[in-house]
Design a protein around this nucleic acid. Structure first.
Lengths: 347, 347
DNA sequence: CTGAAAGCGCTTACAG
DNA sequence: CTGAAAGCGCTTACAG
């Protein structure tokens, strides 16, 4: 009986020298046809227990694993989303990733996560990822001058950019709208009588961020001159150095808006180093609404964006584009989410 | 000319009513054979510019995307790793995930990331993930009594458990060895004259963790009675409540080992609330070595495990099992990594 | 430069 | 209960 031959002659006689065992190898080893192997492997009816056991034994002996490509070709396949983030070490991205994975799971999609920092060639990374998934979501080309070059059409899959520039309509995206949140923050600070506010921005010397410009302009509209400090990339370290510079230029500052929560943590730490009380002497606000801010002392007040909403919209767009119910570019391919002030302790 | 027909009659005439356009649809639309479409899509030589342009136009018109299954069946395919984590909101997991994604990228593997918290049925989630990838790494069944039920054989793909119990040899895994690190921590604390140490453990009332037992036993060997507090799941909140309980039972405590860094942050915060100085009055140590601890004030001393090493070993095992060069169970399928004390400021 | 043929590994009807 | 046939969407030789 063929089943016995397997046990006696062992694995190597059956496994092809190169590559894995296929359904045909298992069928041969068990002395049955291919579809009998399918029945055994997939717990389908119409197979005798004896045969099933024999097939399963042969499969195990050969370390047989059905090819997901062969199967995918013929069965309605699991869809998968590619999520591209810059750096999981920045706490913003895990929160986004968790939200996206959750939103995708709700629709039965799984998520391939790629980190830009691990790629030597970002553009190639994006193309490779695109080849493995049904739609792409995240920060695609975010750090690059050519952002926008990787269009949907070039990639071959729908592309949903997170935090996309409002004017970019050549692919899908979720637009982040800071206007409301920044206005709320100014209002909040003004209510405390703040007159010497500072923006510690993540930017080069001549390029304020959108939120930075809104903050400065908002104060100007109230007749208050806000100091704008470009501090470089948004890390705890630049938060510290930014605050030092701010203190140098405006020793009597009474409020700080940091570009994001991570930078705000640096600001908090630097203020503590100077023995300056928060929020009594200086009020500090971050941006993003990360759960990290809850751990700070004092707990960080922040202009928050709801990443669960962002994720839901992004996944919804991607799934819709994949299904053809959402256009893959133009205004119809965009959604907008507003920031909102979350008052905690630091302001 | 067929190319014109596409432009004139538009998309819908060509796209099959159900499902996406295939290579055959594009070939028909462009009036060429299938392999000419392949040549155009993949930038292969042996095609005239005119033809290529015509094919590309048709492909775009039909929103044609090559099926990754069809392609995967016939080309040496991109391998992918499934990484299963419990909850990305716990900062331990993003650090692990980032390391695993990096290690996988070095070998040309991509990573599907699944979060256990999003699954209604964990076992099913694991099976589905297994069907999409070439190997599985991470916390598989970690939170479940039946941990170990999901074997390599049942799943059909190699399984590498991270932080596997040392006695589990029925599948691959990376073993975490706390002995050295805990011993170093005790030595370090003893050097400061600590005599009233406390372990705030993540555990039920009768089940100390391995590190918890090592800590208590290590002190006992020095004739010092360490207080053991079971505080429940390891969060900032339980860190706080655990410290409160410890203070109740031993008001003069002079050192705390928390189950992990996240809990230690809670301990730090609670001590600050009581106006107790760290490290002057009480020395605090966490476990894991997360970068988060650098942000704490004072910076957190911690018994660290090198997640880059863990990730490299886990991926190495998974890749080796996939390639057949590493056994899929038994002692040969395991690697061990030791914790080591990282002295920062809190102790 | 272009196309007819074969085959990748699997599953789904359809016969027996 | 079991197997012979057809086909999923693609690419790789091989002819012309």
């Amino acid at each position: 009986m063929p089943g016995d031959r397997v046990a006696v002659s062992g694995v190597d006689a059956w496994r092809p020298a190169d590559g894995r065992a296929t359904i045909v190898d298992v069928a041969a080893a068990a002395g049955v046809s291919r579809q009998t192997v399918t029945r055994a492997m997939n717990d389908m009816p119409g197979i005798s227990p004896r045969t099933k056991a024999r097939v399963l034994a042969a499969a195990q002996e050969l370390q047989y694993r059905p090819s997901r490509f062969g199967r995918g070709l013929v069965k309605p396949s699991q869809r998968t989303l590619g999520l591209l983030v810059t750096d999981l070490t920045n706490p913003y991205y895990p929160e986004l990733a968790s939200a996206v994975i959750g939103a995708a799971a709700e629709r039965g999609w799984s998520v391939v996560l790629a980190e830009e920092k691990h790629a030597t060639d970002h553009r190639r990374q994006v193309r490779e990822l695109a080849g493995q998934v049904d739609a792409l979501v995240g920060y695609v080309g975010a750090e690059h001058p050519g952002r926008g070059e990787d269009t949907d059409e070039r990639l071959g899959v729908p592309l949903v950019q997170v935090d996309v520039e409002p004017h970019q309509t050549d692919h899908g995206g979720v637009v982040f709208s800071p206007r409301l949140g920044v206005e709320q923050a100014i209002e909040h600070l003004a209510g405390f009588g703040v007159r010497r506010p500072v923006m510690i921005d993540s930017a080069g010397p001549d390029l304020p961020s959108r939120r930075g410009r809104l903050f400065v302009d908002g104060w100007a509209a109230r007749g208050v001159d806000a100091l704008w400090i470009p501090a470089g990339d948004a890390t705890v370290t630049t938060g510290v150095s930014g605050l030092e510079r701010a203190l140098g230029e405006r020793p009597d500052l009474d409020a700080v808006l940091a570009f994001n929560d991570v930078m705000a943590l640096g600001v908090l730490s630097a203020l503590r180093g100077h023995g300056i009380g928060v929020p009594d002497q200086v009020r500090v606000i971050g941006v993003d609404g990360l759960s990290l801010g809850e751990l700070a002392n004092p707990r960080l007040t922040t202009i928050a964006i709801d990443l669960a909403v962002v994720a839901r919209l992004a996944v919804e767009l991607a799934v819709g584009m994949d299904g053809g119910t959402v256009p893959r570019s133009g205004p119809g391919a965009r959604r907008s989410v507003s920031y909102q002030l979350h008052v905690r302790e630091s302001a």
